[in-house]
């Protein structure tokens, strides 16, 4: 048995062990934990597209929306009897639906690059949002609710473990070296016999699949989803996680997802401490201002991302 697979099993066992205690965690912290898991999934999957394959995408929230809405629609249609099996099938179906959307976005990526690709992916995200806003069976502008809360600590982090295992093992394999080659130099990659078309589309399909799963987890955790929750700004949030984590570094990106999920909550709590001087509390209250300043300052001082080239277990050749 190879080391990565052993690690994966250990991680899954840890999730199971953790879920035993998750019931006794303060619900507020539990919420944050689940959101950390969902954000890690989103950031790691976008990192496959941007960081490893070099295709700039601004429509990741769209894939998440497809996953969230299709899985929610399935469990709602299933009715009250929907158990965890229905939930898991719905999650998977949501991932597949998102992957199909990824395929649709991946195809233009064959002809477009850089900024043009960015605007097309952004456009796709907005189109997905627009279609949902006009779809009555999905609640249109009112949002969609009524899903049972199936998502828990175990399922969230089991998905995280599987996704990180899948992505790292893929990009470290000879098969996955195609992604990195496309990022570094497309023309040279073709000259090395790599079908760059296949790899670009594949990155979008896999990235979208994982984002779709994250959407399904989110829908069955919050129990209410709204088209505005999957707007362009949500996509930007995920891009920021990838950039701050250091593009192409899965470990760094996951860490950035944790930091950027916890930071706003931390700042929220800071503003509640009466013993802190008033200006500090006021600043913390305007945490979005702080957050945006942080992004600018980080880019000015550490453009390679917070954690540089940090990576999960890579064997030396």
């Amino acid at each position: 048995m190879s080391r990565p697979r052993t690690l994966l099993l250990a991680a899954l066992a840890l999730c199971a062990a953790g879920s035993v205690f998750s019931g006794s965690i303060n619900p507020y912290y539990h919420d944050i934990l689940i959101m950390i898991g969902i954000n890690i999934l989103l950031a790691a999957s976008l990192n496959l597209i941007i960081g490893h394959t070099g295709q700039f995408s601004l429509g990741h929230a769209g894939f998440m929306a497809v996953g969230a809405y299709s899985s929610a629609w399935i469990t709602i249609a299933w009715g009250a009897s929907a158990g965890w099996l229905a939930y898991l099938s719905a999650l998977f179906a949501g991932g597949v639906a998102a992957a199909a959307a990824g395929l649709a976005v991946g195809v233009p990526s064959l002809r477009l690059r850089g900024d043009y690709l960015a605007i097309v992916t952004l456009g796709f995200g907005e189109i997905i949002k627009g279609v949902i806003q006009n779809a009555e069976p999905l609640g249109a502008q009112r949002g969609l609710g009524g899903m049972a809360q199936h998502t828990n600590f175990f399922w969230t982090f089991a998905c995280v473990a599987l996704a990180i295992y899948g992505i790292t093992t893929l990009v470290h394999s000879t098969y996955g070296s195609g992604f990195l080659a496309v990022r570094d130099d497309e023309i040279a990659a073709e000259a090395m016999g790599i079908n760059t078309t296949k790899y670009k589309v594949l990155a979008f399909v896999i990235g979208a699949f994982v984002a779709g799963i994250a959407g399904g987890l989110y829908a069955h955790f919050k129990q209410f989803i709204h088209p505005e929750g999957f707007s362009f700004l949500r996509s930007v949030d995920i891009v920021v996680m990838v950039i701050l984590g250091g593009m192409g570094s899965t470990a760094g990106v996951c860490l950035a997802a944790v930091v950027l999920t916890v930071l706003p909550e931390f700042l929220r709590s800071v503003s509640d401490y009466p013993w802190l001087p008033a200006p500090v509390r006021e600043l913390a209250e305007n945490r979005m201002i702080l957050y945006s300043i942080l992004i600018v300052v980080l880019m000015l001082t550490r453009p390679q991302g917070l954690f540089g080239k940090l990576d999960f277990g890579r064997k030396k050749p």
Partner: peptide
């Protein structure tokens, strides 16, 4: 036109990609 950010080893390994007998499922 090398793959600048990849190691020397990985640059050459990338050229072996086209001769792979196994697909993505094996890599996973």
């Amino acid at each position: 036109r090398l793959f600048g950010s990849l190691s020397v080893f990985d640059n050459v390994r990338t050229a072996c990609n086209m001769h792979l007998r196994h697909g993505i499922s094996h890599a996973l």
